[in-house]
Design a protein around this nucleic acid. Structure first.
Lengths: 225, 225
DNA sequence: GACAGACTGTGACCTGCAACACGGGCGAGA
DNA sequence: TCTCGCCCGTGTTGCAGGTCACAGTCTGTC
């Protein structure tokens, strides 16, 4: 049943069939190809989205046009909560990194559905709290770590979420160009390339287009901190 | 009535007397002097706190001992929500910057009080969403802005929250040493000192111990971005 | 009034990283 | 098949900002 898609999201995993169906009924769908934009920073909008398949990047652009990625999100992950609970324009631009499908839910529908399900509000709180914790982590890394450290950390994070373990290591098809990786860790494309080349020359990983194979997770982990 | 203290917090400002009293009854109190620590990063703990008077800094320490401040909080502001909704050890150390008084509330008491008050849960959601939005802002600044820009922004933020407007400008008694300011913007003490000295030499502000008078808010604002 | 200790100011380095520059590969479309 | 764009790799240069070192100042304390 279609409800399985919903249950990918940690937030909705515990719902019974009735609740899931009720929710699913009020949700819309969307599909984007690589490079297409779902919405731009500054746009109005009060919809919550959930990725059901594929990957998106969540980014913001500085006044002088440089870009910075806040997160890469995959199946089961939600975004757009900010405009939901702290009304205001979208604070980031969302772009598909691969072909991606979404479910969407409007503020009003969510609130209506939320009534009488107080547990879910608590679930949302803990989702947000976890996001905040993670973002604080990012701040600390920007202050304390150098670029190679941040690259290592980003790769490990991507590996956790998108990696498949094989006998020669963890295959991570992150689908990001080195430029995008650089924006994700807040560095230049060139510096990231050098860090990657250095890791490869040490045998910690193998580089492939838009993908890496991490041979030595332990060393990468040590380099990350 | 004592309930006024509670109502300083945006979250509780709309409560009626009954609700406020009920909440107030289950809250504890605490008081710290400058430099004293309320709790350390890594400590267990499930209490939510609210500053009623004074100022605290919320910081984390890197493995090699360097420190980074996530926020400076004043009267009406809350902290400790993370351990509440995303159970786990405290993610930051909280230290008093001036003599400070708090109210505290345990997880269980909050949940009990929350029952039957669904509006408050939504209020908490929007608090967290706003915090997250702000933290994302910080990340962008770290990536895009230089140190003087971040210092200007930090001073303006402190001015908004703690400043008093007089005829020679906005007096901001932030109570932070330049070392602490540096930790707040993610830079070294020396670089921050030079940025401040530069602003002062341009006549944009006047330096005083643990305090500044901003003469030209507009120029500072322009420098911040 | 003398001393300690914490805070502030300023210079001389050194380093990590961004910016620029350029060449090579590869995939997609004419 | 050619060729035009995107990617990716790498050397070179300049600068922001971190580190080190020290001097001046402002507290409170005995």
């Amino acid at each position: 049943m279609e409800n399985d898609v919903l249950r990918q999201a940690p937030l909705f995993s515990a719902l019974d069939d009735e609740a899931a169906s009720a929710l699913r009924a009020s949700m819309g769908e969307a599909r984007l190809r690589r490079g297409e934009v779902l919405f731009h920073e500054g746009d109005p909008g009060d919809k919550l989205y959930m990725v059901t398949d594929g990957k998106v990047k969540l980014g913001r652009t500085s006044s002088d046009g440089r870009e910075n990625l806040l997160a890469i999100l995959g199946p089961g992950q939600m975004f757009g909560e900010l405009s939901l609970f702290d009304p205001g324009p979208r604070s980031a631009t969302v772009t598909a990194v691969t072909e991606t499908t979404f479910l969407s839910l409007s503020h009003d529908d969510l609130l209506r559905w939320l009534e009488g399900r107080p547990g879910v509000a608590l679930g949302l709180l803990s989702q947000l709290a976890a996001r905040l914790r993670k973002t604080n982590e990012v701040v600390a890394d920007l202050v304390f770590s150098d670029v190679p450290g941040r690259v290592a950390k980003a790769l490990l994070d991507l590996a956790d979420r998108f990696g498949r373990t094989a006998d020669d290591g963890v295959h991570v098809h992150h689908d990001l160009t080195q430029e995008e990786l650089a924006q994700l860790v807040g560095a230049s494309r060139e510096t990231v390339n050098k860090a990657l080349a250095d890791f490869a020359s040490r045998g910690w990983l193998r580089l492939e287009p838009r993908s890496v194979v991490i041979h030595d997770v332990e060393r990468m982990r040590r380099r990350a901190r």
